[in-house]
Write a protein that binds this DNA or RNA. Structure first.
Lengths: 299, 299
DNA sequence: GAATGCCGTTCGACAATGTCGTACGCCGGT
DNA sequence: ACCGGCGTACGACATTGTCGAACGGCATTC
């Protein structure tokens, strides 16, 4: 029997279970006490209840709707009673809320507030605030700053295009890394190769879903110092991005602009699918300016 | 000794402890197993470790800087080892990150992303997106939508003023309820009296810090259906807000505009400290429109 | 209208689990 | 060189979280 979770027979049956089996494959550094089968000595392992609570929160966040106890329980492969206990606690601390009529659960306001404080701590975002505004003004396009998070691009800042059109705020959203300029810059400059070959979903005909070709593109991105995405995520939309580095020279994020292909690309022949040079310059200058703020050696 | 936490002698010593003593005063419905002293039978209480994890996250969110294990441990009145175990778990699920050099902890990206999904679930915000844009266009001022959360105003949406000035995004921020139009609307229409007399801090000379006078103001706000704040939080800044109600008629949020006193108020005599009538109309119309979207009976 | 199925909820016993205290190695200040 | 403080590791104890079964309400079905 498993040294830690011998009791949770129900959990180990389901592959998506949040029993001890779940994270051992997620964390490469953890001991594989599950493969071995039984009697691992005793490791200072993660706390079971907290991991399960986190899994519940993730589930509630992914499904953009309210979920019931039974739904969560089956999804996690846990007994209802257990899930209910965790939910009660999460509700108690304000991380989830319960609809009074349906009895279903959803994310809570406290979690939202705590999560948004991440932006205050995030040095990248703090330092980038000024420069992103000026980039938006110069380029007249919307500006986004992103960071690599589990193989995807986490948007930590978003400046709307300076016209009066209504735009949705994307802060906190996750973008696909292989189909956005931000993502390509981040992937290309990331020390550990986070490129997930299986995750190369196609959004448009222009999306690059071939791992090999993508790696070539990333090499080029790394060499020239900026990346573009021409209708690879959304038809008619183009984005350009450049890396932001910190004092040690490692890429901690990326800044980029995005907008309609008519405005961002040239008008004739081959240029019709190439971002305009002055916009690329703006982006790269902004990225360099922020990097300098973060202490990177100007190069 | 305390029935549940008898072992945690260290926790009970500190007033801010996260032992069982902490939440019993927060949750009015919970049994006061602490006052009684000892041997409460056994209640389906909140899960200890999760509560503690939440407390750690709150602490990390409040102090806008990285914190160490010892710092957190003393603040919570818990032994270092315990705090470290929880932190390791939180780090494992991505809710906190650890600086590789200093060893201190800060909030993690995963928590931020999960928290921001709250906005997708929040029906108030979803329905209010369109109307807030048009309110910003009509009033030419920045628009905020807020909800009452633990006696403060949680900003769930923010539309920048439609000029090109650089503004900070306030989504996720908490505003004082007694010194903002949004807050006053929410307090005035809240079923349970969340007004905290002790929390009436003064920001400017105009801030109302007298509970009695504030209650009178709230009664007036309730009667006339909108609230204003004239330099009560920030000198020179004025805000106007109106309540958003759902189908049952309860106030679920508030929408309002804010801007410099020169633009929002009249120019002469008594009007100099009264919001202009057309702006008030815009705000109230927007609030009514959203309420209608939420299913409120048009009145 | 009764029966059925599903849901959220409650409860109590078991033992696995989280907690606690002590001890280690390391760094920076004195 | 000493000391204090930090983040970290480990092991024993019994408290605590987990589990499964049972309860009552609600909507749908026959």
């Amino acid at each position: 029997m498993d040294g830690r979770n011998g009791r949770a027979a129900g959990a180990d049956r389901t592959p998506e279970g949040v029993g001890r089996a779940a994270w051992s494959k997620v964390d490469p550094a953890s001991f594989d006490n599950v493969e071995r089968g039984c009697t691992v000595i005793r490791m200072p392992g993660p706390i079971q209840s907290i991991e399960r609570a986190a899994a519940i929160l993730r589930l509630l966040a992914s499904g953009a709707r309210k979920m019931g106890v039974a739904e969560l329980a089956t999804a996690l492969g846990l007994p209802k009673g257990t899930v209910r206990g965790i939910l009660r606690t999460l509700q108690h601390v304000g991380f989830v809320e319960q609809s009074q009529d349906t009895g279903k659960y959803q994310l809570g306001a406290a979690l939202f507030h705590i999560g948004s404080s991440y932006l205050d701590v995030n040095e990248l975002r703090t330092r980038a605030l000024n420069w992103s505004d000026s980039l938006a003004a110069r380029s007249k396009e919307s500006v986004r700053i992103g960071t690599l998070h589990e193989g995807q691009v986490l948007v930590v800042h978003h400046v709307f295009r300076p016209d009066n059109s209504s735009q949705v705020l994307e802060v906190g959203a996750l973008l696909p890394a292989h189909a956005s300029a931000l993502g390509k810059v981040l992937l290309a400059n990331d020390p550990l190769d986070q490129l997930d070959d299986a995750g190369l979903v196609g959004f448009t005909p222009a999306t690059c879903t071939d791992p090999e070709r993508l790696r070539e593109m990333l090499a080029e991105v790394r060499a020239r110092g900026w990346a573009s995405d021409v209708e690879e995520m959304v038809e008619g939309e183009v984005s350009v991005a450049a890396p932001i580095r910190d004092r040690r020279g490692v890429t901690v994020g990326a800044i980029g602009i995005s907008g309609p292909i008519e405005r961002l690309c040239g008008m004739t022949g081959e240029d019709a699918r190439t971002p305009r040079v002055e916009l690329v310059s703006y982006v790269r200058e902004a990225a360099r300016a922020i990097s300098r703020d973060l202490g990177a050696i100007p190069w």
